[in-house]
């Protein structure tokens, strides 16, 4: 029998090395007197809070985390404390939410977000090869946050990617160098392949429009 593999801290699972410090008081709602919040961030979060019924303002956690991510590029610890201060929640409650959702980044990442869908329909059409090629082409660029992502809801343009929110596809491997260059330079990615420009696939639809017009 081989020995059970253990991490440095003795556990069989990673990430359990930071034991709770029981001598410290639990984290509380940050004190507005000692927590400066950038005015722009405060305005955005307060506007979101106003959309919910009185007493239910905590519903604005997800929009608040989006505001933090827009402001700092990722959900930074200080950004989370600032949002918690405005929302009157503890930072831990916000961290619990931030770590649940795939699109919230809790580690520093590049500002250009590129998701390549690697779910069933896209992988049937070559998504894994697309992701590998894009990874090779982009390399270790600190400005690019390239991730394989679960179904992005655009299986009709498989294999596809979302570049800073813009859906493009189908992307052929020949187009990868051009796409990588556009991502690096901040240019519009593969403009001709934008999903929003794509007509409906249903032939009845194109047939119906002229006679109705």
């Amino acid at each position: 029998m081989s020995d059970v593999q253990r991490f440095e801290h003795g556990s069989r699972v990673p990430g359990w090395d930071d034991a709770a410090d029981l001598t410290k008081d639990p984290a509380v709602i940050p004190d507005p007197q000692t927590t400066p919040v950038p005015a722009e961030l405060r305005t955005q979060i307060e506007a979101e809070m106003a959309r919910y019924p009185a007493g239910r303002e905590r519903a604005a956690t997800i929009p608040a985390l989006w505001a933090v991510q827009r402001h700092y590029g990722w959900c930074t610890p200080e950004g989370i404390v600032q949002a918690a201060c405005v929302l009157e929640m503890t930072p831990a409650e916000l961290i619990a939410v931030a770590t649940f959702y795939d699109m919230f980044e809790t580690r520093p990442v590049g500002r250009n977000t590129v998701y390549v869908c690697t779910n069933i329909s896209c992988s049937l059409c070559g998504a894994d090869e697309l992701l590998a090629a894009l990874r090779d082409e982009i390399g270790e660029d600190p400005d690019v946050n390239l991730r394989g992502f679960e179904c992005l809801g655009a299986c009709d343009i498989a294999p596809m990617a979302s570049v800073n929110g813009a859906y493009i596809g189908p992307i052929s491997l020949d187009e990868v160098p051009e796409l990588a260059r556009q991502i690096r330079e901040g240019a519009e990615p593969l403009p001709a392949k934008r999903l929003v420009l794509r007509p409906s696939a249903d032939p009845k639809v194109s047939a119906s429009t002229p006679e109705d017009a």
Partner: peptide
Amino acid sequence: ISISGNVQRPGNYE
């Protein structure tokens, strides 16, 4: 219906 995967004309059809 959304059709995708190994088909020639993927897309939404009513």
